[in-house]
Amino acid sequence: QLRFETNGEEQAKKVLEEAKKHNLEAHVTIENGKWVVHVK
């Protein structure tokens, strides 16, 4: 499982879109005010 700390909602959405293009499972959590994308 990969973990990407992003700078906010915009970047998190871009990472999610990329993951979906590659048929990867991804979800976002907010940790300590940071948007974190988890990709399987």
Rank of each mutant, 00 (worst) to 15 (best):
Q11S: 11
H22V: 06
H22R: 09
V36K: 00
H22Q: 12
H27S: 12
T6A: 12
I30D: 02
R3C: 08
A12L: 07
I30M: 12
A26N: 02
N23A: 09
R3I: 11
A12Y: 04
E17Q: 11
H38F: 13
E17K: 10
N7T: 13
T29V: 13
L2Q: 09
L2D: 06
T6Q: 03
V28P: 00
N23Q: 09
E5Q: 05
I30E: 07
V15H: 06
K20E: 09
E9N: 04
V28N: 00
L16F: 09
N23T: 03
H22E: 06
K34M: 14
G33S: 04
Q11N: 07
I30N: 08
V36W: 04
T29F: 07
H27L: 08
L16K: 03
Q1C: 14
L24V: 06
L16M: 13
E5V: 11
V36L: 03
L16S: 03
E17H: 08
E10K: 07
K14A: 13
K13D: 06
T6W: 04
V15Q: 06
Q1G: 14
E31K: 04
V15Y: 14
G8E: 13
Q11E: 15
V15P: 01
V28Y: 06
L24E: 02
A26K: 00
T29A: 09
V39F: 09
E17A: 13
T6S: 06
Q11P: 04
V36T: 04
E25N: 10
K14N: 08
L16A: 08
K20H: 12
F4V: 12
K14T: 09
K40W: 15
K14I: 13
H27W: 15
L2S: 08
W35I: 06
N32V: 01
A26L: 03
K40I: 15
Q11T: 09
G33M: 02
V37Q: 00
Q1H: 14
G33V: 00
T29Y: 08
K14R: 12
N23Y: 09
Q11R: 03
L2A: 06
L24D: 02
V36H: 02
V39Y: 05
N32L: 05
N7V: 11
A26Y: 06
A19Q: 03
W35S: 01
E25Q: 12
H38T: 15
L2M: 13
V36R: 00
L16Y: 10
E31V: 08
V36A: 01
L16W: 08
K40Q: 14
H38L: 13
V37A: 02
G8I: 12
K14E: 11
G8V: 12
N7Q: 13
E18I: 14
N7K: 11
T6P: 04
A19E: 01
H38D: 05
F4A: 03
W35F: 09
E18T: 11
V28A: 06
E25F: 10
V36F: 05
T29R: 05
E17I: 09
E5S: 02
E18G: 06
A12C: 06
K21E: 07
G8N: 15
K34G: 04
H22N: 12
V15C: 06
E18A: 14
R3V: 11
H27F: 15
R3A: 06
V15T: 05
V39A: 01
K34W: 08
H22F: 10
L16C: 07
E25R: 07
G8A: 10
V15G: 02
H38E: 07
V15K: 05
N23R: 08
Q1L: 14
K34I: 14
V36P: 01
E5L: 04
A19P: 00
K20I: 13
A12R: 00
E9W: 15
F4G: 02
H38R: 04
H22Y: 13
K13F: 13
N7E: 14
N32P: 00
A26V: 10
K13V: 09
L16H: 03
H38Y: 15
N23G: 15
H22M: 12
N32T: 02
L24S: 03
L2R: 05
V28L: 12
I30F: 14
E17G: 06
E18D: 11
R3H: 09
K20V: 11
F4W: 08
I30P: 01
K13T: 11
K13Q: 13
A12Q: 01
E25H: 11
E17L: 11
L2N: 09
E5T: 05
E9R: 08
V37S: 02
Q1R: 05
E5Y: 08
G8C: 10
K21H: 09
V39H: 01
E9S: 07
K40A: 14
V39K: 00
K13I: 13
A19F: 13
H38M: 11
L24G: 03
N23V: 02
E25P: 07
F4D: 03
E9Q: 10
L16V: 13
L16R: 02
E5F: 06
H22L: 14
R3W: 08
F4M: 03
T6Y: 14
E17V: 07
E9D: 05
K20A: 13
V37T: 02
I30S: 05
E10M: 09
V15E: 03
A19N: 01
T29H: 07
A26M: 03
K40D: 13
F4Y: 13
Q1P: 14
V37R: 00
K20T: 09
V37M: 00
W35Y: 09
L2V: 11
N23L: 06
L2W: 15
N32S: 06
E9A: 11
A26E: 01
A19K: 03
H38K: 05
E10D: 11
H22A: 12
R3Q: 05
K34S: 06
Q11K: 05
N7F: 12
E9Y: 14
A12E: 01
A26T: 07
T6H: 04
K40R: 10
V37K: 00
T29S: 11
L16G: 01
W35G: 01
E25I: 14
V37E: 02
E31H: 06
Q1V: 15
K21T: 07
K13H: 12
N32Y: 05
V39L: 10
K14P: 03
H22D: 05
K21G: 05
G8T: 15
E10W: 09
A12I: 04
N23W: 08
H27A: 07
K20W: 14
V37F: 00
E17W: 08
H22K: 10
G8K: 10
V15A: 07
A19Y: 10
W35E: 02
N7G: 11
V36Y: 08
H27M: 10
E10G: 06
E31L: 05
T29I: 11
Q11F: 08
N23D: 07
H27K: 08
K21Q: 10
T29W: 06
K21P: 01
K13M: 15
Q1Y: 15
V15D: 02
V28K: 02
V39Q: 00
A12D: 01
E10Q: 09
R3T: 10
G33A: 02
G8W: 11
E25A: 11
I30Q: 10
H38Q: 05
A12K: 01
V28E: 01
R3P: 03
L24W: 13
G33N: 07
Q1S: 14
Q11Y: 09
H22S: 07
L24P: 03
N32W: 03
T6K: 03
H38S: 08
V28R: 01
E10T: 09
H27D: 06
L16E: 04
V39W: 04
I30Y: 14
E18R: 10
V36G: 01
A12V: 06
K34D: 03
E31G: 02
W35L: 04
E10L: 09
K14D: 06
E10Y: 08
L2I: 13
E5N: 03
G33W: 00
W35P: 02
A19T: 04
E31N: 04
A19H: 03
E31D: 07
E17P: 00
N32R: 03
N23P: 01
E9H: 09
H27Y: 15
H22W: 13
E5R: 01
A12N: 01
E31I: 07
T6N: 04
E9M: 10
N7I: 11
K21A: 12
E31W: 04
G33Q: 04
T29M: 08
K21F: 09
G8H: 13
F4K: 02
K13R: 12
L2F: 13
H27R: 07
A26I: 05
Q11V: 07
N7P: 09
V37L: 01
V15N: 02
